[in-house]
Design a protein around this nucleic acid. Structure first.
Lengths: 155, 155
DNA sequence: CCTTTATGGTAAAGTTTATTTACTCATGTA
DNA sequence: TACATGAGTAAATAAACTTTACCATAAAGG
């Protein structure tokens, strides 16, 4: 049995729902959709764990250790992801000659194509949300989430 | 090296941020915090995968297959989680004599205590967000997210 | 009544993913 | 020089998930 493409609705009244579930469920739905549509668009070999690397703001020009920190995983785990993505042709690791033993991640053409596709999918999703909520309300939602982002709440 | 307790801020201007990242980052921050505080409150043995079971609206009275579907994983994977949580004393699986071979998950006292603790943590988080955004704006945020939840967007 | 089909559940093996442990290389500094 | 530090990597181990396969109950069809 493989993973489903979508999740069943939770049988609850949304009144008593807390911010955790309210954020988690839509975020997961978006995450799934991105993977599914990437896989259906010529990027069949990308799996969930790879998303920790491709995620906004993307790995281009960033050092492995920083990527690990961003993703909340060990440098070793990130390194395995990077090796995998390198083998699949999405990126390359080159020496960053300026600083010690540091290396740097460069996306390949294919990597940038996948990243652009992700962007397109997210644009589609935003269009749908805007149509559902109304343009003003959707802008408000993004504004409020941006304020959360800027605040120390998310650290 | 073990997982960090918090993530570094992404070096970006939030203007060009898409809804994916705007939802993902706060949701992950909440998720991490819940695990960390649970671990620090006498529930040391709960790990990330277990959260797929404990997540709102909780497993009490639900059948394993339904939990698997909700979590977006195979019945077998869910069953391993349930076995683990059963061994740790958070729940029990009993026969549901009404329907076929169906079983049902019952939370133990300890399980309900963990679930209640999760709820408390989320209440704390909501309080902090309300203080940061303002009560009216926070209510607006939840209202907008509830509308997304109710819509077909998240399925 | 017997066979088939569908549903719900479980177990073991195998694969993937992540952590633990241990090491290299470059740089700074006492 | 000797020592410490930070960044990176690799191999071994452990954890988590999927694949494959199976059992048990109920419903339907002959």
């Amino acid at each position: 049995m493989s993973r489903p493409k979508s999740l069943p609705p939770a049988p609850v009244a949304p009144n008593d729902m807390l911010i955790g579930a309210l954020l988690r469920v839509p975020a997961q739905a978006i995450h799934r959709r991105i993977i599914n549509e990437l896989n259906a668009s010529g990027f069949e070999d990308l799996r969930q764990p790879h998303m920790a690397v491709l995620q906004f703001p993307g790995p281009d020009g960033v050092r492995p250790g920083m990527l690990a920190e961003r993703a909340g995983m060990s440098k070793q785990a990130m390194n395995q992801l990077l090796r995998s993505l390198e083998a699949l042709g999405y990126l390359a690791r080159s020496d960053a000659p300026d600083q010690g033993r540091a290396r740097i991640v460069d996306m390949t053409k294919r990597g940038r194509a996948a990243y652009a596709k992700m962007h397109d999918i997210l644009r589609d999703i935003e269009r749908e949300w805007r149509a559902e909520l109304g343009p003003k309300e959707f802008a408000q939602l993004k504004e409020l989430l941006s304020r959360v982002w800027d605040s120390p709440l998310t650290r």
